[in-house]
């Protein structure tokens, strides 16, 4: 009754799992699928550390029930690149030193990847505003903006 079976694709891999209905998508990833790259900073939608893509859109996995992900394609930071083959956004974060402790980084990277797919922005201030759903307590913000813009510049070139 308070358990739920679901099918979900994570980073291209199909999973059939049974979960406590209370389980969030975030805890499904971290606890059941051992994908610990996605972080929990507040569990209440107020920090952005848990940002993942669901069907290509950036969402907060802490305020999504695992059950709500039925039939969806979920992409996490582990799904976009590896240390040997970094995604351009991951490479840009490294090059721009756009992090310190790394706790917000998975969320920032996933947010930035989605932002670069969105087309309703152009300026540095737009990036600031549209990356404001990801808190960084280490204060890497200006360097995160640099990273996003450097990827956009390469895309355009």
């Amino acid at each position: 009754m308070s358990r739920h079976s679901l099918h979900v694709t994570v980073n291209g891999e199909a999973h059939a799992v049974e979960v406590d209905t209370r389980r969030s998508l975030l805890d499904l990833l971290r606890e059941d699928l051992a994908l610990t790259g996605t972080q929990k900073g507040c569990d209440q939608g107020a920090c952005g550390a848990c940002t993942v893509h669901v069907d290509g859109r950036r969402v907060l996995s802490c305020l999504t029930l695992a059950a709500q992900a039925e039939g969806r394609e979920v992409t996490t930071v582990e799904g976009i690149g590896t240390a040997d083959e970094l995604h351009p956004v991951q490479q840009a974060f490294l090059d721009c030193d756009a992090f310190q402790c790394g706790a917000c980084t998975a969320g920032q990277v996933m947010s930035a990847v989605a932002l670069l797919e969105e087309d309703d922005w152009s300026t540095r201030d737009d990036v600031r505003e549209l990356m404001s759903g990801n808190l960084c307590r280490c204060g890497a913000y200006p360097r995160i903006v640099d990273a996003v813009l450097s990827v956009r510049a390469t895309q355009e070139a």
Binding site: T36, G37, E78, G81, T82, L86, L94, F99, G102
Partner: peptide, 25 residues
């Protein structure tokens, strides 16, 4: 000079092990 962080690749790929990630499952 600015060497990039040696632990950077771990952090940008989500592979970095924080304390709770190391806890026995």
């Amino acid at each position: 000079a600015g060497v990039t962080r040696v632990d950077g690749p771990l952090k940008v790929t989500g592979a970095v092990p924080y304390a709770d990630d190391l806890a026995p499952r």
